[in-house]
C-alpha cells in the first residue's frame, strides 16, 4: 500500500534519509507557492499593509462632448 497516502509523515522522514536532496528541494520549492497564497492576506490583516495604487496605464477620457477643432483649416489659395 502506498505509504505516502496513509502515512505521509513517515514517508517524508524516510525520504529525507534516502533521498535528502530531492526531499529538501521539494520542501524548499513548496514554501514559495504556499507563501504567495498565505503571505499577502496576513500582511493586509495583521500588519496593516495597504497595496499601492495601481500605476495608470491609460489617459482618462473627459466626460463631456468632444470639441471639434475649428479655425485651423488651410487657406483656399495655398500659393498666396
Amino acid at each position: 500500500m502506498a505509504s505516502y497516502i496513509f502515512r505521509p509523515f513517515e514517508f517524508v522522514r524516510r525520504m529525507a534519509v534516502e533521498k535528502p536532496s530531492y526531499t529538501w528541494a521539494i520542501g524548499i520549492g513548496l514554501i514559495g507557492p504556499i507563501g504567495v497564497v498565505v503571505i499577502p492576506p496576513i500582511r493586509r490583516k495583521y500588519f496593516g499593509y495597504v497595496p499601492p495604487e495601481r500605476i495608470p496605464t491609460t489617459y482618462p477620457i473627459p466626460k463631456r462632448p468632444r470639441n471639434s477643432p475649428s479655425g485651423f483649416e488651410d487657406p483656399d489659395d495655398i500659393s498666396s
Binding site: 536532496s21 524548499i28 520549492g29 514559495g32 507563501g35 503571505i39
Partner: peptide, 23 residues
C-alpha cells in the same frame, strides 16, 4: 544532476515567489 540542480530550481521558485508575495 541529482543535488545541485534540484536545489537550484527549489531556490529559484522560493525566491521568485517571495518577491511576488512581498511585492
Amino acid at each position: 544532476w541529482c543535488s545541485l540542480l534540484p536545489l537550484g530550481f527549489a531556490f529559484f521558485v522560493l525566491i521568485i515567489c517571495t518577491l511576488v508575495a512581498f511585492e
